[in-house]
């Protein structure tokens, strides 16, 4: 698949998603509260947050389905609703169940395709691509959730768009389906497309996304790369030694912080595995275990979304104020 030059009027903004000071209220409830972030081409950006954090609302505003209370969401530098045949520029999967159950998969896609001047051959192509070619003539009402997710992804891919948004696409997929999505997202980004992928599961994002936009209670918690987040929540190296006390002294002398753990292990921060090994060998201290505890992203995420104090101390960009913990 070759990335199609969609040719938006603002060349430099090709493939950009921009959310600017977006606020969306439903009556008294604030779903999105002054949210700003950008999504750039060529990467998979994970849109991460607990249930009810405002991810879907933000996507709905970006797709022109909901009107923002204030602020705006732009795709390729303009409001989605002003794009004439938007499926060529933006593909989206919001709710896999949003299909008329009486229509066949092929007819469903054909209806959408025709409204954006996309031919029937392309419909057959995407059905093939998502693995639904065999059931194309079956009524979508009989599809499993996994099959509906694939149908929704097929709809997003119809116009071969440069910008793609997926809301919780792995819901209901089997392990093989999850791997397929992961691969698809990565290859779409590798082709130079902009991919925004929402999820409430850090474990999934860790494997798929390059960048993360983390939100909670409608506000931005942090915008970061997966690597940076991992580094920021670095737990150090676990070291076990029969001569723990001596080793502690040696490591601390080398500038590390060492914490004795209840089970006798040492949590070492500030030194790499190799440095610890060299120091121990140099001092003739036996070492039984040296394990880098590359941060559990899941824990990092819990901390980010669950505790606003921790988040401020971590020094991320964006909102502050009286946001309360939403994680569990």
């Amino acid at each position: 698949m070759v990335r199609r030059a969609a040719g938006p009027p603002y060349g430099t903004l090709d493939g950009m998603i921009e959310v600017k000071e977006l606020t969306k209220r439903y009556g008294a409830a604030v779903a999105v509260d002054g949210l700003s972030f950008q999504v750039t081409p060529g990467l998979v950006t994970g849109f991460l947050g607990p249930n009810g954090a405002g991810k879907s609302t933000t996507m709905r505003v970006l797709l022109g389905l909901d009107a923002p209370s204030s602020g705006e969401g732009l795709v390729n530098g303009r409001r989605y609703a002003t794009i004439r045949h938007p499926m060529h520029e933006v593909g989206a999967l919001l709710d896999a169940n949003a299909v008329h159950g009486g229509r066949s998969a092929f007819d469903h896609l054909r209806c959408l395709a025709r409204s954006n001047r996309i031919g029937a051959r392309r419909v057959a192509e995407v059905l093939e691509q998502v693995g639904l070619a065999g059931v194309a003539r079956k009524r979508a009402g009989g599809f499993s959730l996994g099959m509906r997710q694939r149908l929704g992804i097929a709809a997003a891919l119809l116009g071969d768009p440069g910008v793609l948004m997926f809301d919780e696409p792995v819901n209901g997929l089997d392990p093989e389906g999850v791997r397929w999505i992961r691969h698809l997202m990565r290859s779409l980004a590798a082709e130079g497309r902009t991919v925004l992928l929402s999820s409430h599961l850090m474990s999934e994002m860790a494997l798929t996304a390059d960048r993360l936009v983390v939100v909670g209670r409608g506000r931005l918690i942090t915008e970061t790369s997966v690597q940076d987040l991992a580094d920021r929540f670095e737990r150090g190296v676990l070291v076990r030694s029969p001569r723990a006390a001596e080793l502690t002294a040696v490591l601390e002398a080398a500038g590390a912080t060492v914490l004795a753990e209840p089970d006798g292990g040492l949590a070492v921060k500030g030194l790499e595995v190799a440095e610890i090994g060299d120091l121990a060998a140099g001092h003739g201290l036996a070492v039984h275990e040296v394990t880098p505890r590359s941060a559990s992203l899941e824990e990092a995420y819990m901390e980010l979304t669950g505790d606003s104090v921790e988040y401020r101390a971590a020094g991320g960009s964006g909102a502050g104020g009286d946001r309360q913990g939403t994680g569990r």
């Binding site: 709905r60 389905l65 609703a81 169940n97 299909v99 959408l112």
Partner: peptide
């Protein structure tokens, strides 16, 4: 009833 309206309006925002 089916939610198809959101898909429709995403395809044709006018």
């Amino acid at each position: 009833a089916t939610g198809m309206i959101r898909t429709t309006l995403a395809a044709v925002p006018r």
